[in-house]
Nucleic acid binder design. Structure first.
Lengths: 371, 371
DNA sequence: ATTATTTGCTAAACCGATATAGCAAGATAT
DNA sequence: ATATCTTGCTATATCGGTTTAGCAAATAAT
C-alpha cells in the first residue's frame, strides 16, 4: 500500500491524475500550459489541483527537465552594503520570473569561494553570478570548472584572460575622476588607502589614482599607497598609524571604499585633525550612510542595485539557450558625488554646489543611469 | 547509445560504476560512507571518482532521499543591515554543515512574503527561517501552510497564537530600558517614532515605551507616537514634520531603528536643532554606523549575527527528526549602548562613561552575549 | 467512401540518485 | 560436516515529475 504512512504525505501528480481521471502526462501538460489539452479536461484538472492544494515538486521537475529554475549568487561579503544592494537587484529580478536564488559567499577567503561554487554546482543551479576574488597569483581553476560545466556565468568583476560575461563599473575612470578632483582643489600629497590585493577593483582604482597623479605631474612615493582593507576598522587603523607619525602627511585621502573612508574619518577626528579643513577624504560606493556620517562623505556613486539587475538580466539571456553563449561586458558609470568631506588644500571650502540638504524626501532609492 | 550527445554530458554515478567495475549501489554506498564496503573497492571507487572529477547530482539525491540539504531564509529587507547580519549568521552556520541557503524576502509586502515561502516550499527546503510580517489583522495562513507541510520552522519574531520555534530579543525590556534612561536624564516629553504596524517588534517596543512612561508617572499623549517607518527617509520626513510645527516639542526621540534615528538626526541638523543639547536621540539595532554618524548615536545593541546562528542551530536540531518537533523560544538580550546623542534634559552632558573612542582596533565584529 | 490530418490523450522511458531485499562466498558455531 | 551468521556486493524498485512515441477518435481532404 502506498501513501499510507503515519504522516500525511505530500500530494503528488499521481494523486491529481487519479482524482481527475486522467493520466499523469495530462496533468503535467496542464501544469506546463501545453496547448494540446481540451478546455474541459484542463479545467477539471485545475479544479482538482486547487482542491488538493497541489504544489508540484520542483526537485522532481528539476531532475527530469534538467532545469532547476534556480541560480547561484556568490558575493564576497554578505553584510557589506555594496553587495547587499547587488543581492537585492539580483533577487528582485529572479523572483520576478519564478527563479530561486541560492546564496553563496566567499567572505573574502578563496577556499570558501571555491566551496561555495561547488555547493551551488552540486545543486545544479541554472546559472551563476559571481564576484570573484582574484590576486596577481590567482588560481582561477574554479572558473574553468564553472565554464566547463556549461553553466552560464556572469561576473561582477573583470577577470584578466577569462572570456566571460561581466557587469562592472569603470573603476579606473572613477578613481581618476576622484583624484583629479582633489588635485583640482589644490592637493598635492594625496594618499590612496587601498583594498585587498586580490581585488581587481582595487587594482583598477589604484591604476586610476596613479594615472591621475602622473598626468598632473605629481609624484606618488611608495608611501602614497597604504594597505588598508575593506572594513571600517581597517581604515581606522591605517589612518591612526599614518597620521600619528611625524613627517609630511597627505592633505587628502582617497579610499578603496566608504567603510574604509568612514574609519579614516573616525581616526582623524580622534587625532584632532579636522575634515575637510586639514584633510579631505573621498570614499567609494556611495553607500546610504555617506550623507549621514560625521562629515558628509564625498564618494563615488556605484549603481550596485542596477548592477545586480543587469547581471541578472545578462544571465537570464543565457539560461536555456544551449548553443550560443554570450561574451558580453556591461560597464556602468560610476561618478563622483562631492560632499562636505573635501575642501581646497588651503582649507577653504570647495566651490561648486554644496547643497545643505542631507536627505531629500523619500524618493526612488534606486535611481541611476546605465550605459 | 547513451551519453553520445554533442555536449559533454555530466558524469553520473553510472559512469563511475562502469569504470570501477561495480554496481551503482556500491558507488552510492561509498559516497555515503556506508560501512559495508571493503577497503579495496572503496579505494578503487574513490580513485575513479577523483579521476572523473565526479560530483554527485544533488537534485537526484534530493529526490530519492527526500532531503534537499537546503534551507530557506526569508527576511523582510535584503539590504537592511539588521537582516544582513542575520543572513551572515545563518549562512555561515549552514555552509559549515554542507547545507545551501535559499534566499527569500518579503520586502515588507505580505503578498511577496507568501510567494517567497511558496517558492521555497516548492524547492522542498528542509527547513525555513522566517522573519514574519504581521499586522493586527494578520493573515497567518502561510504559516499554517508551512506547519502543515511538516517543514521545520524557526521564526525571527514572536507570533501571537502560533506555537513555533522562535529566536527573538526582549524588545519590550530594551525599549523600557532606553526610555527609562531618557527619563533618568530628566526628559519628560519623549516621542516614539514608530515602525510599521505589521511589525511585532514595533508593537513590543511601543509597549516598552508606554510602560516606561507610565511607571514614571509621565503622560504619553497621542502625539507622543509618530508613525515613521523603517527607512532613513521615513525618520527624516517624520522629524521634519514634527519639528517644523509650532507648539511643544519633545526633548527626546526614541526610534524604531537606527535608520529612522539617523534620518531624524539629519532632519534636526537641517532645522538647526542641536543634538544632544536640544534633543536627545536613541535608535535600535546598533548597526555598524552608529558610532560614525553625525553625532554618535545611542542605540540598543541587537546581536543579529548571533540571532542568525541561534536560529540556524535551532532549525538544525529539527531537521531529520521526524517525530519530535521542538517548540522552543530563545530570547537574546538587547541592551542600551549610550553614546553622544543623548544628554540631560537641560542640555548638560549625560554622566556615565562617555568614551572618546569611536572605533576600537579591529576586534571581533560579532561579539555579544546569548542567554 | 476512403484516405490523410489533426486533436486529445495515454503508456512508458527517463532524469540520477537512494535504499531495500536478496544472493554468494567466507567465517563461526555446533 | 552441517547449519548459521557475517561480509560485501548487486538487482531493482523508487522518488515525482517531463517527454516522446503512439493510438484512437474526430475532422478534413480527395
Amino acid at each position: 500500500m502506498i501513501n499510507q504512512n503515519r504522516f500525511k504525505e505530500k500530494v503528488t501528480i499521481d494523486d491529481v491524475a487519479r482524482l481527475a481521471g486522467v493520466s499523469k502526462s495530462t496533468v503535467s501538460f496542464v501544469l506546463n500550459n501545453r496547448p494540446s489539452i481540451s478546455a474541459s479536461t484542463r479545467d477539471r484538472v485545475r479544479e482538482v489541483i486547487r482542491k488538493l492544494n497541489y504544489q508540484p515538486n520542483q526537485i522532481a521537475r528539476s531532475l527530469s527537465s534538467r532545469q532547476t529554475r534556480s541560480i547561484g549568487l556568490v558575493v564576497k561579503q554578505i553584510d557589506n552594503p555594496y553587495f547587499t544592494k547587488i543581492m537585492r537587484g539580483v533577487f528582485e529580478y529572479f523572483s520576478g520570473c519564478g527563479y530561486t536564488v541560492l546564496l553563496g559567499s566567499s567572505e573574502l577567503q578563496p577556499d570558501r569561494e571555491k566551496s561555495s561554487i561547488e555547493a551551488l554546482l552540486r545543486q545544479r543551479v541554472d546559472g551563476l553570478i559571481l564576484s570573484p576574488l582574484q590576486g596577481p597569483d590567482a588560481d582561477m581553476s574554479h572558473l574553468s570548472l564553472i565554464l566547463q560545466n556549461q553553466v552560464p556565468l556572469v561576473l561582477l568583476e573583470k577577470v584578466a584572460n577569462v572570456a566571460a560575461n561581466v557587469v562592472d563599473i569603470r573603476n579606473e575612470g572613477a578613481a581618476f575622476e576622484a583624484v583629479s578632483y582633489l588635485i583640482g582643489l589644490g592637493h598635492r600629497r594625496i594618499a590612496y588607502y587601498s583594498g585587498p590585493d586580490y581585488s581587481m577593483h582595487n587594482r583598477e582604482r589604484l591604476t586610476g589614482y596613479r594615472r591621475a597623479m602622473m598626468e598632473h605631474g605629481l609624484p606618488f612615493p611608495a608611501s602614497g599607497v597604504r594597505q588598508a582593507g575593506v572594513y571600517l576598522e581597517d581604515g581606522y587603523a591605517a589612518a591612526k598609524t599614518q597620521f600619528s607619525m611625524a613627517g609630511e602627511r597627505p592633505t587628502a585621502v582617497f579610499c578603496f571604499n566608504d567603510l574604509v573612508a568612514i574609519g579614516v574619518m573616525n581616526a582623524l577626528m580622534e587625532l584632532g585633525i579636522r575634515i575637510p579643513e586639514d584633510v579631505s577624504v573621498i570614499g567609494f560606493d556611495d553607500i546610504e550612510f555617506c550623507g549621514s556620517v560625521r562629515v558628509p562623505l564625498s564618494s563615488i556613486r556605484v549603481p550596485a542595485y542596477e548592477m545586480g539587475k543587469a547581471a541578472a538580466d545578462l544571465l537570464m539571456q543565457q539560461i536555456g539557450k544551449t548553443d550560443f553563449v554570450l561574451r558580453q561586458t556591461v560597464e556602468l558609470e560610476a561618478t563622483l558625488m562631492p560632499r562636505a568631506s573635501c575642501a581646497r588644500a588651503d582649507g577653504r571650502p570647495a566651490g561648486g554646489s554644496q547643497k545643505k540638504k542631507h536627505t531629500g524626501p523619500a524618493g526612488p532609492r534606486t535611481a541611476g543611469g546605465m550605459t
